[in-house]
Computed example of a mutant assay.
Amino acid sequence: MPIVKLSNALNTLHPISTPLKNDLKNIAVPVTEEKAVDLLTIGKPYDRVLFLADGFVKGKFYEESGKKIIARIYQPGAIFTDLQAFFLQDKTSITLTTITKCNLLAIKRDDLRKLTQYPEMDTLKSTIFLLEKGIDFERTKMLMMKPPARFKYFADVYPFTVLPNKICANFLHMYEANYCRIKANYLRG
């Protein structure tokens, strides 16, 4: 059940109280989306935080040249949104799109504010910010590696065999043909 998965995910970040778990049940709205659905789009306001119970989501932005760059791949158990847009009530700077069919929970900003009465919410919010910053750091570190090492680093974290090659190659800043060659060598390996 998605709400149990959300409670467990939050509890691994910081212990949460039973009253908070109960209130989460009342405000978390189940959402099922098919493959290739935009959950949020660049330049639009967005007032929800999402929990990915099942499926995969990519986060992409556009370079000045107009090229789409995949900067995030979210896996089951991820809590995500465009943090700046969500907390500052600004327009989004990233598009989030389902890679596969996804089961999510959505929590509106106003409903989340009601949970600030719980002391653990400050720690949870800070931890989620730090995790997002850590993802940026790890991705930057990965992109500085040579392609085979970059792929290995990626393969240790992501289920590359179930994700489309094109998406993985973009995420790793590789041509798809190079990605497929390195992947084949890795699988033989």
Score class of each variant (00 low, 15 high):
P2T: 07
P2Q: 09
V4D: 13
K5T: 04
L6Q: 08
A9D: 03
L13M: 15
S17T: 15
S17W: 06
T18C: 03
L20P: 10
K21R: 14
K21V: 12
D23K: 13
K25W: 06
K35Y: 01
V37E: 13
I42N: 09
G43T: 05
G43Y: 05
K44I: 00
P45C: 05
F51T: 02
G55Y: 04
G55I: 05
F56N: 11
F56Y: 15
G59S: 10
G59N: 10
K60C: 09
E63Y: 08
G66I: 07
G66Q: 08
R72H: 15
Q75K: 14
P76T: 04
G77C: 13
G77A: 12
G77S: 13
A78E: 14
T81S: 11
T81M: 01
A85K: 08
F86Y: 13
F87R: 05
F87K: 00
L88G: 00
L88W: 01
Q89N: 12
K91T: 15
T97H: 01
T98G: 07
K101Y: 09
K101E: 15
K101P: 02
L104K: 06
R109T: 03
D110K: 14
D111T: 10
E120G: 11
M121E: 00
D122H: 14
S126M: 08
T127I: 01
L130R: 13
I135K: 11
K141N: 10
L143N: 05
P148V: 02
R150V: 04
F151N: 02
K152W: 02
F154W: 05
P159Y: 07
L163F: 08
E176I: 12
N178M: 06
C180V: 15
R181W: 00
I182A: 07
I182P: 09
R188Q: 11
